[in-house]
Amino acid sequence: MSWRVTEVPAVLELRGVTKSYDGDPPIEVLKGIDLTIEEGELVAIVGPSGSGKSTLLNMMGALDRPTSGDVLIDGAVVNGLGDSSLSGVRGRRLGFVFQQFHLLAGLTATENVATGLLYHGSSARERKAQAREALTRVGLGHRLDQKPGKLSGGERQRVAIARALLGDPAIVLADEPTGNLDSTTTGEIVELFLELNQQGSTIVMITHDPDLARSMPRVVEILDGEIRLDQVATS
């Protein structure tokens, strides 16, 4: 893929990333991961429970620092940054979707989505306007003022996805976003990711469900902290 080597850097790149946790002996969860995600990709990271998927996502999202190796976002190494800059990168360049949604119970759907811009320093009015737009994009234009307690699991995850989209991040990282959802809803969420990807969003989605991964344009299979397979769908 030498034609891709241009001045435009990859959105995200891991180079020889390892991660060990303290222990006797230390637990090596990631064993030298090399992975590049280009703009506009939709990548499924699949692997059995405990294989190191979440740890990998934490590295990609600068939520944790690798034991060795480098994490590059927009072509720049971020693992050496201080808390303030690292937080800035997370807030401005990355969007996160978690299995357990992490919505604030006291806020409406719009207000929850608006928190996506909270640490950008934008005004409340601007945040809300963008939040309503994003909610409409994920098909929740009719649920703007509902609190999470009144929403179904699928709707909650859509709210979380809308929040991750706010501020136009370079990449959206989703850790088992359908892990708490039934199969119908799971299908709908996968459909939404495909749709958003069509519209230009770069998305990495973690799942332990191989069937689900199969519908994705690119599948990275991880086992025991190593990439076993990196496959681009031929269609």
Partner: peptide, 15 residues
Amino acid sequence: MTELATAPNHRSRLR
């Protein structure tokens, strides 16, 4: 490639 360049300054800000 421009790897190892310093990251552009993405700053968090809270009103």
